[in-house]
């Protein structure tokens, strides 16, 4: 099978890669581009561990084909911090101890950022239901919700 050439933008950088038609965006990110922050928790769109943004829209990278990245702008967890300066969501996840094994963390952060970009002042219930597509087996979610609430407040304040 011949490979498909794709040009796209990832975390602001122009990127070109070759992939097979059947490869998902998640495969491409992890295996071709070395961006292993997005994780495969299920491969079927049910766990959110692979969450990334495509043209400003929150998607499961396991449900998008690599070839579909052509001409689009992709944002991943690797692009969330500004150099050494963490995004407030990242800082709040640290402060609130909102992670244990950490596999779900990149997906939660990407999804939470998508929420706060669209709705800077979500209610606790809006946060819980927005993040219901991201599974975490370790934390019980309480600290995650608190971290997001706290980050939202900080982002509104600044």
């Amino acid at each position: 099978m011949s490979a498909i050439a794709v040009s796209t933008t990832i975390n602001g950088d122009e990127v070109e890669f070759l992939c097979q038609a059947e490869e998902t965006l998640l495969d491409v990110l992890r295996e071709r581009l070395g961006l292993t922050g997005a994780k495969e928790g299920c491969g079927t769109g049910d766990c959110g561990a692979c969450s990334v943004m495509v043209d400003g829209r929150l998607v499961c990278a396991c449900l998008v084909l690599g070839a579909e990245a052509e001409g689009r702008s992709i944002e991943t967890i690797e692009g969330m911090a500004n150099g050494d300066e963490l995004h407030p969501l990242q800082t709040k996840f640290l402060e609130h101890a909102a992670l244990q094994c950490g596999v779900c963390t990149p997906g939660f952060l990407v999804a939470a950022k998508a929420l706060l970009d669209a709705n800077p002042d979500p209610t606790e219930e809006e946060i819980r239901f927005w993040l219901a597509g991201n599974l975490c087996r370790c934390t019980g979610y309480d600290k995650i919700v608190r971290a997001v609430q706290d980050a939202a407040q900080e982002l509104r304040g600044s």
Partner: peptide
């Protein structure tokens, strides 16, 4: 905080895969 927390929030903590 968990020792690797800064790695986790930036997506740079390495698991086997």
């Amino acid at each position: 905080p968990h020792d690797a927390a800064p790695l986790h929030v930036t997506g740079t903590a390495r698991y086997v895969d």
